[in-house]
């Protein structure tokens, strides 16, 4: 089967620095692919190019065979790519359900309407999306007072509003407690199964990555240094050196603790 997303020779330089250097990979339908690497390795740059915030210096990004490299974020969204942000981005002056309705209004191209009352539009669809992420009981709450974990779930509902084929998640669990992290990724994995969405995400929490990713790619100094299954990555000496570390310090302590 042909891949959902196919990235070829993607590069981006800032001055003399090659932030992303000749990166190529594929993402299959229904796959949960993690992109990891040290800070400054080029993950954000790579992500921003996929989402249209940044134009690549060279290379192509094909979504279902169409090149989307250099397109504006909103055009990429229209082609079926949803995203969540590392630092949550929601509309603080609206209610939870209105945040989702906003995405639906945009999807149905109703933004310039002056005659209807917005809060009645696509309400049922929005509520059912909130139901998928377990937020329906908070639908009428003011977005500005939500707990952090709930904001993350709201963002997920918003990203799913236009039935995307691909979801890009930038550090989805950053700033969450360990238990919440696992819960959020489990939720993502369930939705992915149910809707057949593919996911590409960056993440620093290796517990999350190792327990949920189907496949892992490691970026270092702008280059893809490894791409493989969880076990392959875990045992890859190069990855251990630049990113994972020997784990000696912690392992020793943990073993003491368990002893």
């Amino acid at each position: 089967m042909s891949p959902i997303l196919s990235v070829r020779n993607l590069s981006r330089s800032f001055g003399a620095i090659k932030a992303v250097d000749d990166v190529s990979f594929d993402l299959a339908k229904g796959e949960l692919l993690a992109l990891i690497g040290p800070n400054g390795a080029g993950k954000s740059t790579c992500f921003n190019m996929l989402m249209g915030q940044l134009k690549p210096s060279s290379g192509t990004v094909q979504l279902l065979g169409k090149n989307i490299a250099g397109m504006q974020p909103r055009k990429i969204w229209r082609m079926g790519v949803g995203r969540t942000f590392q630092i949550t981005a929601t509309y603080a002056s609206m209610t939870v359900v209105e945040n989702v309705q906003m995405a639906l209004m945009s999807f149905h191209r109703k933004l310039y309407s002056l005659t209807t009352f917005a809060h009645t539009l696509y309400r049922d669809e929005a509520l059912s999306l909130l139901d998928t992420v377990g937020m329906v009981d908070q639908a009428e709450r003011h977005c500005a007072v939500l707990a952090y974990g709930d904001l993350k779930r709201l963002e997920l509902a918003v990203a799913l509003a236009h039935d995307p084929i691909l979801l890009l998640m930038d550090e989805p669990t950053a700033g969450m407690a360990p238990r919440e992290r696992i819960a959020l990724m489990q939720l993502t994995a369930d939705i992915l199964d149910a809707k057949g969405v593919s996911v590409l995400f960056t993440e620093h929490d290796m517990d999350v990555v190792f327990s949920h990713a189907h496949r892992i790619m490691v970026l270092n100094r702008g280059q893809l240094i490894a791409n493989g299954s969880v076990d392959e990555i875990r045992n890859n000496p190069q990855v251990q050196e630049v990113y994972l570390g020997g784990g000696t310090l912690f392992n020793a302590v943990q073993e003491d603790a368990h002893a």
């Binding site: 040290p38 620093h204 570390g245 784990g247 310090l249 912690f250």
Partner: peptide, 12 residues
């Protein structure tokens, strides 16, 4: 928070 595991060890 938010830094690579190798750096975390260095921090410790």
């Amino acid at each position: 928070e938010g830094i690579a595991p190798v750096i975390v060890e260095q921090m410790a």
